[in-house]
Design a protein around this nucleic acid. Sequence first.
DNA 1: CCTACCGATCGGTAGG
DNA 2: CCTACCGATCGGTAGG
Lengths: 191, 191
Amino acid sequence: MTTERYSKDDVVAAAGRLFAERGYHGTSMRDLGRALGLHGSSLYSHVASKEDLLVAVVEHGAWLFQASADAASTVEDPSDRLYSLIRGHIDVVLDHRDEARTFLDEARAIGGAGRRRVIEHRDRYEGAFRRALEDGVSAGLYRADTDPVVTAIFALSILNALDRWYDPADRLDRDGLATAIQHQLVSGIER
Amino acid sequence: MTTERYSKDDVVAAAGRLFAERGYHGTSMRDLGRALGLHGSSLYSHVASKEDLLVAVVEHGAWLFQASADAASTVEDPSDRLYSLIRGHIDVVLDHRDEARTFLDEARAIGGAGRRRVIEHRDRYEGAFRRALEDGVSAGLYRADTDPVVTAIFALSILNALDRWYDPADRLDRDGLATAIQHQLVSGIER
DNA sequence: CCTACCGATCGGTAGG
DNA sequence: CCTACCGATCGGTAGG
């Protein structure tokens, strides 16, 4: 018999919601407590500090993106792999908006070593897109003068903004969205 | 003979720098004062409130974007007009990073009516891209099944992220960058 | 633009 | 998880 109403994961999830919505510095521990029906000070039985909470949310986001890239990396065909990467990113960004947005926007509030780890995560994730594009060039699918670095950034720029405008009630479902993005991207580099 | 070391514009510019870098809520009036070599309380002879300062930065950003769109709107040819919009956006985002980033990221910290005005500004600006694309479709430059709404969003997603990665020391100059973006975009919708 | 403040709120702790 | 706090910092004001 325990008196704990929430697990640490619950607290981290609620923190993600507020951090994504108002930003890390725009959210106080008392705000977060209120969202859970607790006192702000009670949160310290779950976490050591506010920054701890940010790190937990951001690392969850990083993990979701990486899991998606790892799954896509098993696909041989570069074009199908690119589709998998796009489709996976869509799911992460729409099914885990809070973690994704916090990962993308609030990592700058993390100090020193934690911030560097986030940047490493992003570089590695970006590398999966880069490689799919490089392999596509090698396979003759995309023009030889394609810049995989820049094209990967373009792809991620589009993907990272999705949750800001995509409406699931749209005529465009997620598969259609993924196809539209790949088509926008690939027809720009197809030969 | 005056004792004022700074104009309001100076204060607004410095605020933009800090808001873009650390966010509105991550910047205190004392931080801002320190950046200018003043006491935090001295800033209140230039502005009525901290939010005032945010509104001033964001409105400057909105104005810069709108001025760019207005200049481009004089171009008849839809393809040239799209290039002008892209090229203008690049200049705003790279020559006025602080105002642009604050406009893009920190407007959510503005309350009620101010926030609505920002959203109207964005919609209007996006409309210029949408119209260039629509006109391009009408002129037979782009495929008839092009979705100008979605394509405009894709274009702006790429453009709004530029300052996060573009290195002016690159082999790619601004004209080359604009061409690359238009090419990425248009070849995806050309017939 | 500075000095000297104000009440409110911040992240966090002690002790239960 | 709550009560009762802590010192630090917040946005902002009065008066010069």
